[in-house]
Design a binder for these strands. Sequence first.
DNA 1: CCGTACCCTAGTTT
DNA 2: AAAACTAGGGTAC
Length: 295
Amino acid sequence: MEHGLIPGEELVGGIDLFSTIESGQTYCWRREDGRTYESTERGGWYTTVVDGEVLRVRQVEAGLEWEATTDPVDRLTYLLRLDDDLDAILAATPEDPLIGEAYRTHRGLRLVRDPPFRCLISFICSAQMQVPRIHRMQVALSETFGEAVAVDGETYHAFPTPERLARASEEELRELSLGYRAPYVKATAEMVAAGEAHPEEALGLGYEAARESLTRFVGVGEKVADCVLLFSLGYLQAVPLDTWIRSAIEEHYPECDRGNYRETSRAIRERFGGEYAGYAQTYLFHHLRTGAATA
DNA sequence: CCGTACCCTAGTTT
DNA sequence: AAAACTAGGGTAC
């Protein structure tokens, strides 16, 4: 594999690789030590397979060190949004004690751009599920149905194609602990494999129309649709209303609770400054989930 | 728009 | 100690 470095000074606003990858927004990466996002231990290599290419990245003092089968700089920049100007984005959020604390505590956390189908499946799996178990499901899916890629004596697994997941039986998927999500994953994979629908078709639509369009996939409601928009399709204004954010709204922004998803979503999006509201959501989610919040 | 069923696992309570 | 109970990043019907 080739290797190289992306200097830290090129990343405006910095980078916190641990927070970026293990904050529950992406399930595409695997830790060197095999842990599945359940520890608070930082450091080490993260590996993924995208378009048949293996890429590995870790945070070092000088920046991001990488190893890959082809030069991964453009790909890493895309996947980890290394071209986002974090200083400008954070500055665009209205003053707020809780958000401010989250920004200061986890400075360098970036949103991601996961491959759309993979993102869609991982968030269908996320329903009523905790982060480490969602990650374990994605690892199981890759190892069971994903193509193996051998590099330097190591074997890596790509994420399965829509066609392969469509061919899997519901029973096989249940064996991977997907539970009631198994038929959702299969049905959605069938829709994509058949060319009936693709998550990328949401691109180009206005935000709310895009969210609506994603809900045609089986197992995808408004919350999961918002996750795909934010973590894959670049709709940075999306604010997925999960239980953590809902309880934060109840406690800190009660005036934004409008009783239903659509209106509450509009209100909190406005409260978080609109264009980059999804950044505030992701920092806040990570901040609450790690138990670091005091504000 | 509202209520309920749905898998599964780890952690807590009887 | 074994068995209930509970909750965890929702969605379909």
